[in-house]
């Protein structure tokens, strides 16, 4: 059976891992390559690196980091942050990234999803969607959740899937940083609308939250950062807990 995936997310700025509470206060949680190795050894199924400095700075640091990670670890990883062209994607894939995640650039230029899927295959195109509820409507936001768009989460997710995305990384800005659990209702609704894998993100605080994201939220994978970085949850223990709750995992 296909296992549910546990994905530590490493936010990268200036080559270092950071994780903000609701994307604002940044704290340093270590060297990304070292963390990647640790997570891989602990049983993480995949890693996501989000370069939050990408729009302001040169990309060379990121490419070097991708290469160093690919050299050391033997599990797949996704790279995102400021990716807006075929050329951006090509250099990351050529240096060992397995998938790329696009967010704002997909909203601004939806055709990019089609172009990337056609050139590199859907399997390496992850579309990240940040959304929060405004007057009961899930609205897609940009720039780390600061700028609202006109897009409704569910409509956008359907369009993204139709355009050829291989996976959706859905972050609930309402839940992110709260440690109160994932946005399971919205996640479950997404699963009824689209037929590509969905990664749940935002809100992980304890192991029960992960169980719920899979059972109630029907997610294919769950992503978290600080609970892993600050060792509040050990991946090995988490996977045992998931298995004990009837969730198929790779142990």
């Amino acid at each position: 059976m296909l296992a549910k995936r546990i994905i530590p997310c490493l936010d990268i700025k200036n080559g270092r891992t950071v994780k903000g509470v609701n994307f604002v206060d940044l704290r340093d949680a270590g060297d990304p390559v070292e963390l990647a190795e640790i997570y891989s050894a602990e049983g993480a199924d995949e890693l996501v690196f989000l370069d939050i400095s990408a729009t302001e700075e040169r990309r060379k640091t990121l490419v070097n980091m991708v290469r160093s990670v690919a050299e050391k670890i033997n599990i797949p990883f996704t790279v995102g942050g400021g990716i807006s062209s075929i050329e951006d994607v090509e250099v990351l894939l050529n240096n060992g990234a397995d998938k790329v995640s696009i967010n704002s650039s997909a909203v601004k230029n939806p055709q990019l999803i089609n172009d990337l899927a056609q050139k590199f295959g859907s399997q390496c195109v992850v579309v990240a969607i940040d959304a929060k509820q405004i007057d009961g409507q899930w609205i897609v936001h940009l720039v780390g959740g600061k700028v609202p768009t006109e897009l409704n989460l569910f409509d956008w997710a359907v369009e993204v899937a139709e355009r050829g995305a291989g996976e959706i990384l859905f972050t609930s800005m309402d839940n992110d940083g709260t440690k109160n659990g994932f946005a399971n209702e919205a996640l479950a609704k997404l699963s009824t609308l689209i037929n590509i894998p969905i990664i749940a993100s935002g809100g992980a605080g304890n192991m029960r939250h992960f169980v719920d994201s899979f059972k109630e939220g029907k997610a294919d994978a769950a992503l978290a950062a600080s609970v892993f970085h600050f060792k509040e949850i050990e991946i090995k223990t988490l996977k045992e807990e998931l298995r004990n709750n009837g969730v198929e995992v790779r142990i």
Binding site: L2, A3, K4, Q123, P197, D220
Partner: peptide, 13 residues
Amino acid sequence: TSKVKVPQMGWNQ
């Protein structure tokens, strides 16, 4: 088929 999510993505036995 569309009975399952496509692509299959992740770890399987």
